[in-house]
Design a protein around this nucleic acid. Structure first.
Lengths: 344, 344
DNA sequence: CTGTTAGCGCATTCAA
DNA sequence: TTGAATGCGCTAACAG
């Protein structure tokens, strides 16, 4: 195995093609004002040497110092929702030749700050963040210095920045109302920490639907602070053991939905207890009954956020926009199970 | 909204703390040989100015020119297998303060080359690639110049480089033998293009199992070149319409597995036709019957590949290693359906 | 249309 | 322990 040779530089290309640095630079950057013959000579030297434009050096010198890279901070790159979001952001980035630095925050505010720091050290042009932190004023310095931010899934706190979030309260309300219309009164709520804006909005949609229907809240049927599949499964098993268990359940997030599905299945109650989840679950249509959900549109969210970010990077200084994307109720069976006396 | 001020540089920090560039550089890089007092003064200036070390400029000047970033080329960042792989690579990268540039190749060889180019322009230290191209000799130039490569899921072609792939042929053989043991003889094979090394290995595992059991191949039950969920669904529906349809099916990849699940469900044959898939599917345990699979371990694959890559980046020049990771048969019901005369 | 000079932000080399 | 000069690979601003 041969020792790594030095990478050819723009100098080497200039020497081989018998011209100056600047002309090579012009060719590499596709600038006008180079004769076709020279351009061809330069190009052939580039091919011959296997020269690759060094974007790091380029952006260092270039005024404005764009790096043609952005950061994307997700909850977890392996979560389906995060993955779909990532994918749609990548699509727009690709069109612009922008690279995407992706990382998982895992619900940890300290990680979020640390990762923002890593991205700042790499001088990304902008960051799309699905936040965990509840105070984003720490981003003020980065913003002042020209880094653009767009928030997805959750709105920023103590920072005036663009955001793209689904219609959480409206969607939850629709999902819960759907089960109320099926005759259910005892509808459980299973969600994550209410300190997360998204979660609290979903909870308020639940409350609004019950209130509108004149159904009193039962604290025993409301569980929040769920963090994973396991805790959600255990918590719902406990609800099933109540003297007067719920006849329906609304799960406020996909991981929680999966936990509850396992609990229902373990107790063989999937076709007895109505269930609507917020956020789609993979293969939800193949289960029996199918899993009814209030589906977000991660592709729309990602596309909108990316478009917003690139507009900002391009100099758009219009007022902060908070986009709310629509959700839709997907009826697959579990949410359409009607209340029957015997199930009490 | 104030105009973006210039980012503070190491100069500004030096000026504010009343010292030289070099001392600030030492503090920023955690080098020894700075008096505690000076270090403290520098640190306070850094905090006050909101200074961020510029890794781009740093790696330009530094000998060796590491950028502390790697590229990861996946089939599709929103695919669960790719996501899990990405996640485990990120974990090791994080420990080293290395950023991950992720992108989707979508099975397109031209895209693969293009993305490799984008990564090269950004001078990543190494690249983990789940390839689509069938000829990797085009990477020779990049390698000669110091960029390290590790292949995952599929082995490199015409390039001597490390790889980490699952036991494709062995795993398929186990999955198919499992159904043979259940009395099945007419076992269909549904897979993607045989030009993909992974796919052809899985196919040969299928052939080996049938051969070992003395069962003749039936060309009509073998479908390859499947590219997505829809084509796989349609193709299997066609098999079900044969005069003598299969009594069992082996699906060689997760997307194909999902397509076949839809076909089986549409014909209400899920509890009649035995089914084993290669690669796990989300919620496979919640279906009825559960989906039996030969599961890969994406976390092990990702971790192994990342460890290998970082070792190479750190200078390991030991011979090329081709790691084969074990798979395991997960029995959930569909693969355990036995052959019964009446189903013919 | 082409080339020269200067310097982006930083780390290296060497001197104090 | 500290600091001054030099240049990484490239592009802006200017000349020719």
């Amino acid at each position: 195995m041969s020792a790594p040779r030095a990478r050819p530089t723009i100098r080497d290309v200039a020497a081989l093609s018998g011209t100056s640095l600047k002309s090579v630079s012009r060719v590499v950057n596709g600038e006008s004002g180079v004769s076709p013959e020279l351009a061809a000579r330069v190009q052939s030297a580039i091919d011959q040497l296997g020269y690759r434009h060094n974007l790091g050096a380029s952006s260092l010198r270039r005024s404005g110092q764009r790096t043609s890279s952005i950061g994307v901070l997700l909850q977890d790159v392996s979560n389906p929702f995060s993955g779909a979001l990532h994918r749609s952001i990548e699509l727009l980035a690709r069109e612009r030749g922008v690279a995407v630095l992706a990382a998982s925050v895992d619900g940890d505010p300290a990680r979020e700050r640390l990762l923002i720091g890593e991205l700042a050290k790499r001088r990304v042009d902008g960051i799309i963040v699905m936040p965990s932190e509840n105070d984003h004023s720490y981003l003020l310095d980065e913003r002042r210095v020209g880094t653009q931010f767009v928030f997805v899934d959750r709105v920023p706190m103590f920072l005036d920045a663009d955001s793209v979030v689904a219609d959480n309260s409206g969607g939850s309300s629709v999902g819960v109302s759907h089960m109320l219309a099926g005759g259910h009164q005892r509808i459980a709520y299973m969600g994550d920490s209410l300190s997360i804006s998204t979660a609290s909005e979903r909870y308020s949609g639940y409350v609004a639907a019950l209130t509108a229907a004149g159904v009193a809240l039962d604290e025993r049927l409301i569980v929040s602070e769920l963090r994973d599949e396991h805790s959600s499964r255990e918590a719902f098993l406990a609800l099933l053991d109540l003297a007067d268990p719920p006849t329906a359940v609304f799960t406020a997030q996909n991981i929680i939905t999966i936990g509850v599905l396992h609990a229902l299945r373990a107790r063989n109650q999937r076709s007895r207890i109505a269930h609507v989840g917020f956020d789609d679950v993979p293969l939800g249509d193949l289960l029996d009954p199918g899993v009814s959900v209030v589906a977000q549109d991660p592709v729309l969210i990602g596309t909108t956020a990316a478009a917003r970010l690139f507009a900002r990077i391009d100099g758009d200084r219009s007022p902060t926009a908070h986009v709310v994307t629509p959700v839709r109720l997907v009826e697959r069976g579990s949410g359409e199970l009607r209340f029957v006396e015997s199930s009490v």
